[in-house]
Amino acid sequence: MTKYSLELKLKAVLAYLEGVDSFSTVAKQFNTSLTPLKHWVAHYKEHGIEGLMSTYTNYDISFKMDVLNYMNDFGVSSTHAAAVYNIASPSTINKWIKQLEENGVGALETNKKGRPSMKKETKKKPVEG
């Protein structure tokens, strides 16, 4: 379950976009901190309500490189790139940057998580001759 419901995110974003109150006032009103609210507003501006929906995505290496190249080509922040590419958290992109700098492109390859499957080994019958 997500920390903030879609309904709360949408209400907070719309309250801010009305232009009456500041980020900090709206954040206090909805009992959230400033940073998530700013992210929600940016995502909403780029993608509408879909930008506020929580999703778990396993990004492939080409997508990660597209995002990093976009940042490099246009000189934008990870927050801006996260909004454009609908990535839930800019910290995800910051992690990719660190992996790339420390270990190269191969570090961006997705690793399988969890236990390996418990497939039964098939026994080969000895060939009688």
Rank of each mutant, 00 (worst) to 15 (best):
M1A: 11
T2Q: 06
Y4H: 15
S5W: 13
L6T: 01
E7D: 08
E7L: 05
L8S: 10
K9E: 06
K9Q: 09
L10N: 05
K11W: 03
A15C: 14
G19E: 03
D21S: 04
D21Q: 05
F23I: 15
S24T: 14
S24G: 13
S24W: 08
S24H: 09
V26Q: 11
A27W: 06
K28T: 14
K28A: 10
F30N: 06
N31K: 14
N31Y: 11
T32Y: 03
T32W: 00
L34W: 11
L34E: 08
P36F: 09
P36W: 03
P36N: 15
K38M: 10
K38P: 05
H39F: 14
W40A: 14
V41Y: 07
V41C: 10
Y44P: 14
Y44N: 09
K45I: 12
K45E: 15
H47W: 12
H47Q: 09
H47D: 12
H47I: 09
G48W: 11
I49R: 14
E50N: 05
G51L: 12
G51Y: 10
L52S: 11
M53G: 06
M53K: 01
M53Y: 02
S54P: 04
Y56C: 02
Y56D: 10
T57D: 02
T57M: 00
N58I: 02
I61L: 10
S62L: 13
F63D: 00
M65I: 07
D66R: 13
D66L: 13
V67D: 00
V67W: 01
Y70D: 00
M71R: 00
N72T: 07
N72G: 01
D73K: 14
F74H: 07
F74V: 05
S77M: 03
S78G: 13
H80F: 12
A81F: 08
A82V: 06
A83S: 15
A83H: 13
V84W: 01
V84G: 03
Y85D: 00
Y85Q: 01
N86Q: 07
N86S: 08
N86I: 01
N86H: 08
I87G: 06
I87Q: 03
A88G: 06
A88D: 05
S89K: 12
S89N: 15
P90G: 00
P90C: 07
S91M: 08
T92Q: 09
N94K: 14
K95N: 15
I97H: 12
L100P: 08
L100V: 12
E101W: 09
E102Y: 04
E102C: 08
E102G: 01
E102D: 10
G104H: 03
G104Y: 04
G104V: 02
G106I: 04
A107E: 05
A107T: 05
A107R: 14
L108F: 04
L108N: 06
E109L: 15
E109D: 11
K113I: 09
K113T: 15
G114L: 10
R115H: 11
R115I: 07
P116R: 13
S117T: 02
S117C: 04
S117P: 06
E121V: 02
T122A: 11
T122D: 12
K123L: 07
K124G: 07
K125M: 02
K125Y: 07
K125V: 11
P126F: 04
P126R: 09
E128C: 02
E128I: 12
G129V: 15
